[in-house]
Design a protein around this nucleic acid. Sequence first.
DNA 1: TTAAAAAGTTAGCCAAAACTAACAAGGCAA
DNA 2: TTGCCTTGTTAGTTTTGGCTAACTTTTTAA
Lengths: 224, 224
Amino acid sequence: MPTISVENYLKAIYHLEQQGEEGGLVKNKAIAEKLEISLPSVTSMLKSLADNGLVVYERYKGVKLSPDGCSQALNVIRKHRLIELFLVETLQYTWDEVHSEAELLEHAVSDKLAAKIDAYLGFPDSDPHGDPIPSVDGQVRVSSAIPLNQCSPYCTAIIKRVLNQSPELLRYLKELGLVPGSAVDVVSVQAFDGQMNLSVNSTQGETSAIITAQTASCILVLPQ
Amino acid sequence: MPTISVENYLKAIYHLEQQGEEGGLVKNKAIAEKLEISLPSVTSMLKSLADNGLVVYERYKGVKLSPDGCSQALNVIRKHRLIELFLVETLQYTWDEVHSEAELLEHAVSDKLAAKIDAYLGFPDSDPHGDPIPSVDGQVRVSSAIPLNQCSPYCTAIIKRVLNQSPELLRYLKELGLVPGSAVDVVSVQAFDGQMNLSVNSTQGETSAIITAQTASCILVLPQ
DNA sequence: TTAAAAAGTTAGCCAAAACTAACAAGGCAA
DNA sequence: TTGCCTTGTTAGTTTTGGCTAACTTTTTAA
C-alpha cells in the first residue's frame, strides 16, 4: 500500500498533467509549489516513484504518471470526491468545507468503504464542485464545458463545474448563486479587463453578479 | 497534532489501564504485544511520550497516562466509536466489519467531523458493541454490567456490551442473537468448565445457545 | 551569443519510528 | 540466597520523507 505522501505526489502530478498541455511533462517546480515542499525533496521522491514504476521520470525535464501511477492517483481522487459529496449529502457540510476534510480522509478510506459510499449516493457523476468522480476502473467522464470568461455577451450557459477549492471563493460564489446547475446570461464584458456582468438564474431566483475575468476562468459552463 | 503512531500508543495504554487493576502501571510488554511492536521500540516511544507530557513513565516499572495523554486517548476512542456506529447506521456495515475501518479513520477524522457525526446520530451513548462513547470533554459513562460467566443458573440478564473485536467471534455471537439489547436466561452451567447453556431472547425471537466460559467472559450483562 | 536567472540535482543532515543484538534489572523458584 | 528467566534498556541500524547549502543544467533575456 502506498504511503500518504506517495498518494499526495501522485494526485498532484495527475492534477498538474490535467492543467498542462497534452503530452507535456510535469515540472518538478510545479509539484514543489503544489505540495509546498522543497525542490530537492521532490527530486528525491520522483526518483523513488520512478523506481517503483509509478512515474516516468526524465532528469531535468519532468515526470508523467505511468499507467499504474495514474490508476492509483485516480483511486485517491475518486475517494476524495466521493467523500466530499457524502459529507454534503449526509452531514450537511457546505461545499466550501469539504475539501480539507476529504484531503485527510481520502488516505484512510478503504476501497470497500468507497464502494459503499458510491452505492449509498446512487453512483453519482460528480462531486459538489462538479468535478467528475472516476469509476472504480479509472474511467473519468470528460466534459466539453468551457471557462465562463471565454463566453461573449448574450451568451447563455449552465454552470457545470468550479475549478477552485478556496473556501473564501466558494462561499462568495455560493452567495452569488454561481454554483453547478445555475444558468448564467452574459450581460456585458469589460473590454479592457474582461470583467463580466452576469444575470444568474439559480435556486435563489434571478440575480445579477459582476465578477472578474480571473474568477470567471474558474467557472466551467456549457453554453446553451 | 499527534502522529498516528502516538495516537495508537495512547489508545493502547488507555485500554490496558482499563483492564489492569486500579492505579497499577501498564507494563511495556503489554503495550508491545497489543501493538505488535518490539520492546525496545516501546521503551523509546514511552520516553518520547513522557518528554511530551503525555504519560508518566517509571523506568523498569511501566507507564500511566497523564491527564493530557488521557484526554487525547479518549478523543481518539470517541472518534473510533462514533465512526463505528455511523458506518452501521448509514452504510449498513455489520458490527463485525466496523472495527478495522474505524481503526484507520479515527486518525483522519477532525474534531469538527466527529461533532457532526455525533449530532447526526443523536448523541448516542454507545457504539454497536455497547462500548461507551466518550463525550467531547472526556467523560465516559460507567456501567455496572458484569461478565456473563459470573452469572448463575436461573439468572436473567440483558446484554450490554461485547468486549471483543474479532470479526469471527462477532459474527458467531450475532448468529446466536447474543448482541447488546438481547435478554439471556442462564439455563445451566457446567460445573467443571463453566460452559453455559442459555436461552436467548433477541430480535430473532426465542433461541437457545451453548457457549464456553471464555466466550461468556466477553459478554457484559446487567442482571434483572 | 552569452551571461544571468531559474530550475534541477547532489550531498549531507535531521526526525520519527521501526528493528536487532547485547546488556541490565527484577522477580521467582529451588 | 542464589541463580535463572523474564522484562526492560541501551546502542546502533534502517527507512521514509523532509530540509539546507552548494553545484549544475536549462532557459531566458539582453
